[in-house]
Amino acid sequence: MSEDAAYVDKGKEFKRDTNYITTRITRDGADGYPVEPGRYRLIAARACPWANRTIIVRRLLGLEDAISLGMPGPTHDQRSWTFDLDPDGKDPVLGIERLQQAYFARDPEYPRGITVPAIVDVPTGKVVTNDFAQITLDFESEWVDYHRDGAPDLYPQALREEIDAVNKRVFTEVNNGVYRAGFAGSQEAYDAAYDRLFTALDWLEERLSKQRFLVGDTITEADVRLFTTLARFDPVYHGHFKCNRQKLDEFDALWGYARDLFQTPGFGDTVDFEQIKQHYYIVHKDVNPTQIVPKGPDLANWLTPHGREALGGKPFGDGTPPGPVPQNERVTPGHGAG
Score class of each variant (00 low, 15 high):
residue 1 M to T: 11
residue 2 S to V: 07
residue 4 D to E: 11
residue 6 A to P: 02
residue 7 Y to P: 02
residue 7 Y to C: 12
residue 7 Y to F: 13
residue 12 K to H: 15
residue 15 K to V: 15
residue 22 T to N: 12
residue 22 T to K: 14
residue 24 R to W: 01
residue 28 D to K: 13
residue 28 D to Q: 12
residue 31 D to L: 03
residue 42 L to C: 10
residue 43 I to P: 02
residue 44 A to E: 06
residue 46 R to M: 08
residue 49 P to S: 01
residue 49 P to K: 06
residue 51 A to L: 07
residue 51 A to V: 07
residue 57 V to T: 13
residue 59 R to C: 09
residue 59 R to Y: 12
residue 61 L to Y: 12
residue 61 L to C: 10
residue 66 A to Y: 06
residue 69 L to K: 07
residue 72 P to E: 04
residue 73 G to Q: 08
residue 75 T to L: 03
residue 75 T to M: 08
residue 77 D to V: 09
residue 85 L to N: 14
residue 89 G to T: 09
residue 89 G to H: 11
residue 90 K to Q: 08
residue 91 D to P: 02
residue 92 P to S: 14
residue 93 V to D: 06
residue 95 G to T: 06
residue 99 L to F: 05
residue 100 Q to M: 02
residue 101 Q to L: 05
residue 105 A to L: 05
residue 113 G to R: 15
residue 114 I to G: 04
residue 116 V to D: 04
residue 119 I to H: 05
residue 120 V to A: 01
residue 121 D to N: 08
residue 129 T to P: 04
residue 132 F to L: 07
residue 134 Q to S: 13
residue 135 I to V: 12
residue 138 D to M: 07
residue 141 S to H: 12
residue 144 V to H: 09
residue 149 D to V: 15
residue 149 D to Q: 13
residue 149 D to K: 12
residue 154 L to H: 03
residue 155 Y to H: 11
residue 156 P to A: 00
residue 162 E to Y: 06
residue 163 I to A: 02
residue 171 F to E: 09
residue 174 V to T: 04
residue 176 N to H: 12
residue 177 G to Q: 03
residue 178 V to A: 02
residue 179 Y to A: 02
residue 182 G to C: 03
residue 182 G to Y: 03
residue 185 G to P: 05
residue 191 D to Y: 01
residue 195 D to H: 10
residue 200 A to K: 08
residue 201 L to N: 03
residue 202 D to G: 11
residue 203 W to N: 08
residue 206 E to C: 00
residue 207 R to T: 15
residue 208 L to Q: 09
residue 212 R to Q: 14
residue 215 V to E: 09
residue 215 V to Y: 08
residue 219 I to L: 12
residue 225 R to P: 03
residue 228 T to D: 05
residue 229 T to F: 00
residue 234 D to I: 02
residue 238 H to Q: 11
residue 245 R to M: 09
residue 246 Q to M: 15
residue 247 K to Y: 14
residue 250 E to T: 09
residue 252 D to K: 14
residue 253 A to F: 12
residue 255 W to T: 00
residue 256 G to V: 08
residue 259 R to W: 00
residue 261 L to F: 00
residue 265 P to R: 14
residue 266 G to N: 09
residue 266 G to H: 09
residue 268 G to Q: 09
residue 271 V to W: 00
residue 274 E to Y: 06
residue 278 Q to L: 14
residue 280 Y to Q: 05
residue 280 Y to D: 04
residue 287 V to R: 13
residue 289 P to V: 06
residue 291 Q to A: 15
residue 292 I to S: 13
residue 292 I to P: 00
residue 295 K to H: 14
residue 300 A to Y: 01
residue 306 H to W: 01
residue 308 R to P: 11
residue 308 R to S: 11
residue 309 E to W: 05
residue 311 L to H: 13
residue 321 P to Y: 01
residue 325 V to E: 06
residue 327 Q to F: 03
residue 327 Q to T: 10
residue 329 E to N: 14
residue 331 V to H: 07
residue 331 V to K: 04
residue 334 G to W: 03
residue 337 A to D: 01
residue 338 G to P: 11
